[in-house]
Design a protein around this nucleic acid. Structure first.
Length: 112
DNA sequence: GCCTTGACGAGAA
DNA sequence: GTTCTCGCCAAGG
């Protein structure tokens, strides 16, 4: 018998892993895409429980700032990984290569 | 069973 | 720009 959390975690992990490099998603967005609207807070908990390394650093808050405290180690860790993906910062906010960051564009590519 | 806690989200002042 | 309040939902004490 599967607990709610088990199936939830699986979906969340799958969704996080589906985020393209150089692209970021909000917690609420991840939850929604995974099929669990309004479970933004649980997304954070699910990531902490992940048995395998996830691109968790591609998940940021809805206002595009990082979820950790700016002076914490995890914050610096995430910032480092993001930069490695080509994502930069501006006033503590992540900046993707596409300001209009729609996943469609990333997945389908720019339409000439 | 109640209260607090979160890697949250959104809106108001 | 900041700080507060409220909504959200499972987990842990």
């Amino acid at each position: 018998m599967t607990k709610f959390r088990d199936s939830f975690d699986i979906k969340i992990w799958a969704t996080v892993k589906s985020i393209p490099a150089g692209q970021v998603m909000g917690y609420g967005q991840v939850a929604s895409v995974a099929g669990f609207p309004r479970y933004s807070r649980m997304v954070a908990a699910a990531m902490g429980r992940s048995p395998e390394p996830l691109p968790w650093y591609r998940v940021v808050k809805s206002d595009r700032t990082l979820a950790f405290k700016p002076d914490s180690d995890p914050y610096r860790e995430q910032a480092k990984l993001l930069k490695k993906e080509g994502i930069l910062f501006e006033s503590n906010k992540v900046v993707t290569v596409d300001p209009d960051d729609s996943l469609d564009k990333v997945l389908w590519g720019p339409i000439d």
